[in-house]
Amino acid sequence: MSASPPPELTTADYPLSINRPELLHTPSGKPITALTMDAVVSGELSAEDLRIAPETLQLQAQLADASNRPQLAANFRRAAEMTAIPDDEVLAMYNALRPRASTAAQLAELAARLEGTYGAPVCAALVREAAEVYARRDLLARPVADSDQ
């Protein structure tokens, strides 16, 4: 995470790849301008370098807000948090949110893990809201007495 505060963007900054490339970095810290064919051929780039950074998703969230799309902005903020979560675990978390896949305790644990391990409070809030609705609509898994899950 950069120490300087993120810049205030307006819709005129879009597309960032053309108008504000200096703001764009890979999660490994390379500027987007470093993603060249020479770097591919010389083996300097890995697939990890072609991922989006959480800071970039926050910038896109600003643009979504600036264009009056608060829900889209909220999605990008959840996404920014999720960049820290490994692929397999993202999928496991998604599966845990399916109907009757998790008990109330498991969803509470998932929310706590999102918040504690991954610093993902916005995602955690979504999971807690789901847990409350699932309880009311009979969509929780029934706890198994001797389960160690």
């Binding site: 999605n75 959840r78 692929d87």
Partner: peptide, 26 residues
């Protein structure tokens, strides 16, 4: 409808989570 959504093995919250998962990978 809630019933068909559940038949599809999803909920609005699971699908929202998935939407953010895609965005998180750009």
């Amino acid at each position: 409808t809630e019933s068909v959504f559940i038949d599809g093995d999803d909920t609005p919250w699971s699908k929202s989570f998935l939407a953010a998962a895609y965005a998180s990978r750009g």
